[in-house]
């Protein structure tokens, strides 16, 4: 038994928000792959677990013309196997597939990965480069949080009591957008990131966005760069920006020294992959 909580299968977002606000120590259960481990390990002792998987709208995965919507209950495998996602934003599929094991991804969700707010969250860097926003339902009203404002520290977000993330919205990717995700692990099998990076390049606007994970208390979006000049020069600019924006630490997974050494390598490879085929490069 995983502690002594009660369970409710919420039927609507309103119900979930209400329960979350009313009841002490209530938590949202989507995939459960982080929550149940934390409960097992005694790190959390919820009294009520509110399952949101039965709320129809949270199960929506809807890439439409203007805005793509990924519901909070969509498991990672479903997301990664979605044709439009794979074709238009392959980095998002790659990041999703780099999380945990196949079995875990049949439960774990993109929203859960973000709400857990690990500095190493694999989905975060890609979503940062895609200007994703989180739709949040609260006890009183709805709000939208740009992902760049969502993380406030290690395992901390700007969500307040009673707020539930219902989905993630991504502006429909512009024509020709290139996205890449790279992750350095300790082993090829399932692992948390030692360093993860993501980038998107819009060939029309000629802008390059890069984000870095596992190298600061939160995933970090670097200042967007204009993709002009040689690929190598752009890469060095990105590396410089990243070095200014991150502060890797040593932990059981890697030393700060190793993270500092690998980060520029991944960034150079990322920029190269994004820009090497650009016309006029």
């Amino acid at each position: 038994m995983l502690g002594a909580f009660d369970y409710v299968r919420a039927r609507s977002v309103e119900e979930a928000c209400r329960l979350l606000a009313e009841r002490d120590d209530a938590v949202i259960l989507a995939g459960g792959t982080d929550l149940l481990v934390e409960v097992r390990n005694g790190l959390r002792e919820p009294k009520l677990v509110i399952d949101v998987k039965a709320i129809d709208e949270l199960a929506r995965l809807d890439p439409s013309d203007e805005e793509w919507m990924i519901g909070a209950a969509v498991p990672l495998n479903r997301l990664a196997e979605h044709r439009a996602i794979r074709e238009s934003v392959p980095a998002l599929a790659d990041a999703a597939l780099s999380i945990g094991t196949y079995q875990l991804r049949n439960r774990a969700t993109l929203v859960g990965n973000l709400c857990n707010a690990s500095p190493a969250a694999d989905a975060a860097p890609v979503l940062l480069t895609l200007d994703a926003k989180l739709s949040v339902a609260g006890p009183k009203d709805f709000r939208t949080i740009p992902i760049a404002e969502f993380f406030t520290g290690v395992k901390r977000t700007c969500l307040t009591d009673g707020e539930v993330v219902t989905d993630i919205r991504i502006p429909a990717p512009p024509q020709g957008l290139k996205t890449v995700f790279f992750k350095q692990q300790r082993i090829r099998g399932h692992d948390l990131a030692v360093v993860n990076v993501a980038g998107s390049y819009d060939p029309t606007a000629k802008t390059l966005k890069v984000a870095v994970g596992s190298c600061a208390p939160t995933p970090v979006l670097l200042e967007p760069t204009e993709a002009t000049g040689s690929t190598a020069a752009i890469a060095e600019r990105v590396v410089e920006l990243a070095e200014g924006a991150t502060s890797p630490i040593s932990d059981v997974r890697a030393s700060a020294e190793y993270r500092r050494a690998v980060l520029p390598v991944l960034l150079r490879r990322l920029v190269d992959r994004l820009l090497s085929e650009r016309s006029g490069a």
Partner: peptide
């Protein structure tokens, strides 16, 4: 890959598959 990691007071830091990695089918 495999090693026990200890802190300076002798506490064991990686007693789970999260941080004690054994080869998988990908390795």
């Amino acid at each position: 890959w495999e090693e026990f990691r200890f802190d300076e007071s002798g506490r064991f830091l990686n007693p789970a598959f999260v941080d004690y990695k054994i080869p998988t089918a990908k390795d």
